[in-house]
Amino acid sequence: MLAVRDLTKRFRGPNNEVRALDGVSFDLAPGDFLAIQGTSGSGKTTLLLACGALQRPDGGSISIEGQNPYALSAEERTRFRARHIGFVFQQFHLIPYLTVLENVLSPLLALDDAGAKARALELLQRFRIQDRADHLPAHLSTGERQRTALARALLHRPKLILADEPTGNLDAQNADAVIDGLRELAAQGTAILMVTHDNRLAARAGRTLAMERGKWKVAG
């Protein structure tokens, strides 16, 4: 499903070079739920964006469903993301002027799909936000916002979910609800890569890895 080999990424800082990724390798099979932990600045987001075909690495290789997204043209890579990857972020990144339902449907701007409307309504039911369908994000609780973002990520039924601290802004109860959702997806065969600070929530994932200065922390 996802195969990452020797991934490296450097950023040029003001006076030094940051090795955000320094030889990271791992595999993710369908149904895998991998939690990545690590201190701030250890390279977790960089890894996630690289896996999400959003941040071209300097070295190493990434294969998603047998395809290297960085070998594609920019246009194709964009389409590739729409088809194969669902994103969830700590800041939700909902579009403020669209309702919950519209936000969930917004991936249609990237990829048209006849069954999407019905699926969106199902997703709202599944994440218990069907009553909020016509509300704007500003009127939602943080838990509802993240569940809306999760529903959006699932609209095109991606094989890979990339979640960057999806529970970072949530209380324990809402965080558990999100993890429940992800576990359910994994159980249905979706591969999930989740970044989190929270040990308790990381423990609820199928597998945990820790990062430190762009590398896996040994004996993790």
């Binding site: 959003l54 964009t78 994103f87 972020f89 990144h93 909902l94 579009i95 991936p107």
Partner: peptide
């Protein structure tokens, strides 16, 4: 908003 739209595959 632009970032998320690009991430979810809007050209």
């Amino acid at each position: 908003e632009i970032g998320i739209l690009r991430a979810i595959g809007v050209r």
